[in-house]
Design a binder for these strands. Structure first.
Lengths: 115, 115
DNA sequence: GCATCATATCACTCCTTGCTGATATGTTTG
DNA sequence: CAAACATATCAGCAAGGAGTGATATGATGC
């Protein structure tokens, strides 16, 4: 039962990590976070810079907002979005550091975590 | 065209990041990485500690191996897996640090990236 | 060489997610 | 108040990934 207790205790943390990673595991969301890392932007600017469709950007922004990864402020009829915490930028940098080591492997992997 | 060149240059990086995040965005894989962070293990030990089925563990290990996130050594009829780089442990710690800030949001998000 | 154990692979199904097009909400300006 | 613009929401579809059960490969010991 020892093992089970540990497992359940760990499970919650794992599930949370997984969910956060899922939030970061989409090219559209990463593109949005990428342009927001350079500074706050209103939605139509994000659309222009990323080349994504407006509903698509809007959907992903909602997701990122719910997750707490971005924050928004109304500015007249615009809504300006920004990165909510510098830790996010830090995390993205760490990922790039890890990619320096595993990039080829990741590109090659075609199994789960696929294409 | 300036914008387009930047976009394409960024796209490759974004796609790679997304793929790496996808590799980390599954509870089973995170559970496996979690137990491996405490030290190398052979497959049936991973199965026992995580409570996952053997084929499931094997599938995910293959994915993690292809991605370069874990490495393996044959040891008689056992195969021992280990974390391939300390940067992975570091990244997982960073995620926990970010979760300290955004945990409630992430749990609440039910949209994309959702449960 | 055969039985056994450790691990990997395959075929299949289910579920989730992401995108699109159309439309709704909301805000400002004339 | 109406028109125009900014953003959000919805329905529906298509694709990818995760899990399972059965089976194959591979190594060890008698």
């Amino acid at each position: 039962m020892q093992v089970f207790a540990d497992r359940n205790a760990a499970a919650a943390g794992i599930e949370r990590r997984a969910k956060l990673f899922r939030g970061l595991a989409d090219p559209s969301r990463l593109a949005i976070l990428g342009v927001l890392c350079e500074g706050p932007l209103v939605v139509h600017e994000i659309v222009k810079r990323t080349g994504l469709s407006q509903p698509n950007v809007s959907n992903h922004l909602r997701c990122l907002l719910d997750c707490g990864l971005v924050a928004s402020d109304r500015d007249g009829r615009f809504i300006r979005y920004r990165i909510s915490s510098p830790r996010i930028t830090a995390l993205l940098n760490d990922v790039d550091a890890l990619l320096d080591v595993v990039a080829e492997g990741v590109e090659a992997c075609d199994n789960y975590c696929g294409e």
